[in-house]
Amino acid sequence: MTTPNRIILDKYLRHNKKFPHIWCPGCGIGIVLAALLRAIDRTGWTKDEIVLVSGIGCSSRAPVYVDFNTLHTAHGRALPFATGIKAARPPLKVIVFTGDGDCAAIGGNHLIHACRRNIDITTVVVNNYIYGMTGGQQSPTTPEGMKATTATRGVIDQPFHIAELAASAGATFAARSTTYHAKELESFILKGLEHKGFSLVEAISQAPVCFGRRNGMGDPVEMVKREKELAIPISKTAGMTFEEKKDKIVTGIIEEREAQEWTDLYAGVKKTAGEE
């Protein structure tokens, strides 16, 4: 039985925080945040044991609105702060909420090393292909040919595929879904939260004002529909070439495996050191 959104919002939003939020009308970040809150609700964790950490950018403004221990760090640095919290106090449930620029550009090195450590942190990346807060500059995930204020003739750099990047860097859970597939997104986030080790869920999202408008993608509804059209489950990608997959959104669980987790391993180091 799923809890209605209204109950979830009432339970987890901060009542002493002045709304409205800063996101543009039609932005997908709220859909991703709601999916996260529903997933958290299904874990049964208490609000006191959860730490929600973010960097800088539109999506990184999310923590201020929700009633956990919340930490809005510097640009790109959510994962180092989160690593320090988790390593110093392993019982805490540490979740990072970040965006494509924050996580994969300025924070890219931290991302791959957090994956490599397999430390028990769940990272939710809102990938809307653009720097929204600064008004629409190209990000490391902007598809080739798309326009941004710093690529008015079209992006020429190859984009990162964040979930695959995380998996190849050692993340033991990596998945991708979209704001159209909000229920699937919620279930992937829940799997990530319950996974022991570093988990990353990439949420493809719409930025109608800073990205869609400049690229002729129509209103927010059309943008979300486009996600549905481009989505292809990973189960159906067998045999597809890189070129064939390039313009699709591959959804599903990209990596899921068991491996020893950092704080568990370090507990072992402490035990050995204490006995020496």
Binding site: L71, P80, F81, T83, G84, I85, A88, L92
Partner: peptide
């Protein structure tokens, strides 16, 4: 950068 970030995080955790 990660080093000081982790220290600040750990301090926030007590």
């Amino acid at each position: 950068i990660a080093s000081i970030g982790a220290c600040l995080g750990a301090s926030l955790a007590g």
